[in-house]
């Protein structure tokens, strides 16, 4: 295993890329997914149809195809260049938003009507009701689904190796190619994924317990 020390910098920079893309994707997915969920509930027919098309595209096509479209097709069409890291941020953000929209909308729908009416009765606007009453409860409900989304997204970032981005899996491939120590290399890479993903999942579990509404056991 000691030979891996020589490549630590490579592993570390790959790991950093993986973490960056994952966190950015999750964060962008959360913000955009929330906006899409609100748009889907309130936006009327046209907006809601557009949102559905968006969601179906990202859920209904392979991630690799999405990466190719943003790495090859769109730059060719617009005659621009996008580096593979930026493509990763965009695609994982847009892709995750499509999934997170579903989770957030579901959570919002489950607490929507009575809480909304109570908020309106105080004179809050619909928008205020969403911000101060609906979302704070929906976000708590969505954490378990969110933890799944994180888990799946973190591993999907390995697909970036296809468009030449040097993330964690691609670092492993490079090392394996140099050293031919395939077994140790990939075992070590897998271990890194396992450790960091487990750590974040554990952190989300703790967060879920921490923000749980006292006395109210939210179960999905």
């Amino acid at each position: 295993m000691y030979f891996l020390f020589e490549y630590l910098h490579l592993i570390f920079s790959g790991f950093l890329t993986t973490v960056e893309v994952t966190f950015f994707g999750i964060a962008m997915g959360l913000v955009l997914g929330t906006i899409l969920a609100i748009g889907d509930i309130y936006g009327g027919k046209i907006v809601s149809t557009l949102i559905k098309l968006y969601v179906e595209f990202f859920r209904g096509s392979p991630l690799l195809v999405q990466l190719f479209i943003f790495y090859f097709s769109i730059p060719t069409l617009l005659d621009i260049q996008i580096d593979s890291f930026t493509v990763g941020l965009i695609v994982f953000g847009l892709n995750s938003a499509a999934y997170q929209k579903g989770y957030i909308k579901g959570a919002m729908a489950s607490i929507y009507e009575d809480q909304m009416m109570a908020a309106l009765s105080l004179g809050l606007s619909k928008f205020q009701a969403i911000i101060y009453v609906i979302l704070p409860q929906a976000m708590r409900l969505v954490i378990p689904a969110w933890s799944n989304e994180f888990c799946s997204l973190a591993k999907s970032t390995a697909a970036l190796l296809i468009i030449g981005e040097r993330e964690l899996t691609s670092a492993g491939k490079t090392i394996a190619g140099h050293t031919w120590r395939v077994f140790e290399t990939y075992t070590f890479i897998a271990l890194i994924y396992f450790v960091w993903i487990s750590a974040v999942m554990k952190a989300l579990d703790i967060l879920y317990e921490k923000v749980k509404i006292p006395g109210l056991e939210v179960s999905l």
């Binding site: 009416m117 109570a118 309106l120 004179g123 809050l124």
Partner: peptide, 20 residues
């Protein structure tokens, strides 16, 4: 309507407090 609703108090049959 928001302004008007603020001037009318409403107490619901099923209470509907904000759970959070």
């Amino acid at each position: 309507l928001n302004k008007a609703r603020a001037r009318i108090g409403f107490v619901f049959q099923h209470i509907w407090l904000f759970n959070h």
